[in-house]
Amino acid sequence: MFRSIEISVGLFVGIGLAALFMLAMQASNLGSFTSEGSYQVSARFVNIGGLKVKSAVKVSGVKIGQVADIDYDSNTFEAVVVMNIEDKFSQFPRDTIASIFTSGLLGEQYIGLEPGGDIKLLENQSEIRHTQSAMVLEQLIGQFLFSKSKDK
């Protein structure tokens, strides 16, 4: 009698823990990326737009890491973005360009890397020199209107 209760309680708790595990690993970002097995590089941007911690870092549209930290350097008036990149993608030249792009017209923002031609490679804790800030929609519209009015 008591054994069957034990078995069903065991099953119940087992299913419950499996569900928790699934929520943690499969159905959230916990399982998709961890800082283990990765190296850090930083980059400075004049404007990061809507970039957030945990935003994606992509090359050719493939996700290779995520933003680990965002800070503001009050000496240079620039944002400092630290990103974690997985170890298996460690072959980036020194003169790689980091840009902030938007996925779709209203989508979230991510960092896109464009590899350059240098022989030396980016190392852990190094800094990407060439960056391009986020496009801010209002600025673009403003520039567009400004140039239109100048054309007349």
């Binding site: 929520l23 943690a24 499969q26 159905a27 959230s28 970002n29 916990l30 399982g31 998709s32 945990k54 994606a56």
Partner: peptide, 14 residues
């Protein structure tokens, strides 16, 4: 699945 993993945060949501 990839949308789930990109947007659902373990600490904030789960």
């Amino acid at each position: 699945w990839s949308q789930i993993q990109a947007k659902v945060d373990f600490y904030d949501d789960v």
